[in-house]
Design a protein around this nucleic acid. Structure first.
Length: 583
RNA sequence: GCACCGAUGGUCUAGCGGCUAUGACUUUAGCCUUCCAAGCUAAUAACUCGGGUUCAAAUCCCGAUCGGUGCACCA
């Protein structure tokens, strides 16, 4: 009956990967603690993400407050759009979306306030669709956690529901940092918060979770990627619109998918490829990974194309762990409007363009003294006029409802030809957005194996629990085990520990119980390598290294043990090159 | 948020109105042990919380919390 989720979570709790938060006080749904091993695992996943997106792609990381002011979320649409108007039946207590109930009677319920919706329901005598009962007052349930900034409640604040807005808000600073050149990107790894109505599914649906997001600002006219050829050959499991209608995903190279128009453009394809490489590197199994394209009706209206990386989970089926979207210029435009600041990039042309422009020049020397305070408005109105409107003897204007007549001497106009060297464009945004908690859980589930161990005569079936984590993400990277609990073996073991720690390797010492038990303990938490000190160590200074996956051993010198282990973990050194095979 | 089901050491579990609350595994200390968990000895450790019924509640009732399942929600 126990499914894999149960097995994995049980192990994770017992060994210190994941704990329910606030357990001491009974716990609260939607919150999880990372224990000592879980926190380390998660940190290593984040660091690999940094290696790929920050170091190799050059998208510097920023860090902004997790609390945002109201303006940000008005611009992003979260204040209005991240809430649902609910109404409850007074009789059967069922809750309904008020906007859905009135959509037949009014044209655009989306933009109506709760009060307006209440009014509409009352006027049209709309009843509970379940039992026909009376419906209560409409209220907004917003999924953002809110708070107030400073004493009193004047300044509203919200815990951010995504890290993305931080990068958009800092756009002008980022643009300067990158010296006014497109494309550029910024990333952020941090907490985000959503006050889910009823979170279930353990660590899959959290109220506080960690996102790793990149916002990459590109020229909307050029969505190619200079390094596209590097990834064009990578084959992905694609679940496109068409594939979803057929119900079957297809293997296809990124190059082909872009060429055939399945993926909208190179830049998006490139992000899919790097996402794939990241997920495989941290330990998601490729056979349980697919990229699903959003259907047209599921995509945000502003998005050009959107793909989710999904992993297959034993209990939950296909689960979204990454979203990769072309958000076009939606976010920058919204913040531009809300803040009243232009958010654009000046892009020079290769060769300057000749542009013919009609220019109106009000003579402020005449207008100023005559019209005083109104002169500014008059000048602005004049500039908006066309040639034929300016050519009469008098020009009639209406300023603040007052008719004003301007003599033609007060204004000159001409059509001028000038060189234009470039233009301001609003970049498009490509957004790969990663749910780090879901990825961390996926790794645990995909790495978790229950194996039949060899059984000697007269023994029952034996199970070996092993977490086949990639060495690079394993929280404990090496265990040092004296074969027997004896002083003379513990000495060299401590020397080895010192060397490994100096090389930045997280190492555990364990001398409790039989050697077999200790191997199993380490298998269960995914420790990739165990170093055993035996009596031969005292004779010739060699130790054995045991490989967690194969349970094979090599014997090697303890002098360069740190380099040896480091190469095994980080440089992909094959295990049989680490020493001479034992047996 | 609604409905149904569940909750006992770290983990799994016995209990069915009255016990000093089973047992196993784990863990810890010691013994033994020269390479793949469960040899020996000992120790630590639990009735989710709050009310109620009763002489007496882990056990019955009510509520809360958490977990599971279905519905709703998931920008």
């Amino acid at each position: 009956m126990a499914d894999k989720y149960e097995l994995v979570i049980e192990m994770a709790k017992r060994r210190g990967f994941l704990w329910n938060s606030f357990e001491l006080y009974g716990g609260t749904a939607g919150f999880f603690d990372y224990g000592p091993l879980g926190a380390m695992l998660k940190r290593r996943v984040e660091n690999i993400w940094r290696d790929i997106f920050v170091i190799n792609e050059g998208f510097y990381e920023i860090e902004v407050p997790t609390i945002g002011i109201e303006d940000i979320f008005i611009a992003s649409g979260h204040v209005s759009g991240f809430s649902d108007p609910l109404t409850e039946c007074q009789k059967c207590n069922e809750a309904f979306r008020a906007d859905h109930l009135v959509q037949d009677v009014v044209t655009n319920p989306d933009i109506m306030s709760a009060d307006e919706l209440t009014e509409v329901i009352k006027k049209n005598n709309i009843k509970c669709p379940e039992c026909g009962g009376k419906l209560g007052t409409v209220y907004e349930f917003n999924l953002m956690f809110n708070t107030s900034i400073g004493p009193g409640s004047k300044r509203k604040g919200y815990l951010r529901p995504e890290t993305a807005q931080g990068m958009f808000v800092d756009f002008p600073r980022l643009l300067k940092f990158y010296r006014d050149h497109l494309p550029f990107g910024a990333t952020q790894i941090g907490k985000a918060y959503r006050n889910e109505i009823s979170p279930r599914q353990g660590v899959i649906r959290l109220r506080e979770f960690t996102q790793a997001e990149a916002e990459i600002f590109i020229d909307p006219r050029d969505k190619t990627h200079p390094k596209f050829t590097e990834v064009a050959g990578i084959e992905l499991n694609l679940f496109s619109h068409e594939a979803q209608e057929k119900g079957e995903s297809q293997k296809m190279s990124i190059g082909n998918a872009v060429a055939n128009g399945i993926i909208a453009h190179q830049f998006l394809g490139y992000c899919l490829a790097r996402t794939y490489q990241f997920l495989i590197r941290v330990g998601v199994s490729s056979g349980k990974l697919r990229f699903r394209q959003h259907m047209k009706d599921e995509m945000a209206h502003y998005a050009a194309d959107c793909w989710d990386a999904e992993i297959h989970s034993d209990r939950f089926g296909w689960v979204e762990i990454v979203g990769i979207a072309d958000r076009t210029d939606y976010d920058l435009k919204s913040h531009s409007k809300q803040s009243g600041t232009e958010l654009s990039v000046y892009v020079p042309y290769d060769t300057p363009k000749k542009i013919q422009r009609f220019a109106v020049k009000p003579d402020m020397g005449v207008l100023g003294p005559k019209w005083k305070g109104k002169a500014g408005k008059i000048a602005a109105a004049l500039k908006a006029l066309k040639a034929e409107e300016l050519s009469g003897d008098h020009i009639e204007l209406t300023i603040d409802g007052e008719k004003i007549t301007i003599e033609k001497e007060a204004v000159t106009f001409e059509t001028i030809t000038e060189d234009v060297h470039g233009e301001n464009i609003i970049p498009h945004v490509i957004e790969p957005s990663f749910g780090i908690d879901r990825i961390t859980y996926s790794i645990l589930e995909h790495s978790f194996f229950e194996e039949e161990a060899e059984v000697e005569d007269g023994e029952d079936d034996k199970k070996r629990l092993v977490l086949r984590l990639p060495p690079e993400v394993a929280p404990v990277q090496a265990a040092v085990l004296p074969l027997l609990t004896r002083e003379e073996l513990i000495g060299p073991a401590n020397d080895i520990i010192k060397k490994l720690r100096a090389a930045g390797i997280l190492v555990a010492f364990d001398d409790s119980g039989t050697i077999g038990r200790r191997y199993r303990r380490n298998d269960e938490i995914g420790t990739p390598y165990s170093i055993t000190v035996d009596y031969r160590t005292l004779e010739d200074g060699t130790v054995t290294i045991r490989d967690r996956n194969s349970m094979k051993q090599v014997r090697t010198g303890m002098n360069d043990i740190a380099n040896n282990i480091y190469d095994l973990i980080y440089r992909g050194k094959p295990f049989d090159k680490a020493g001479t095979i034992v047996k």
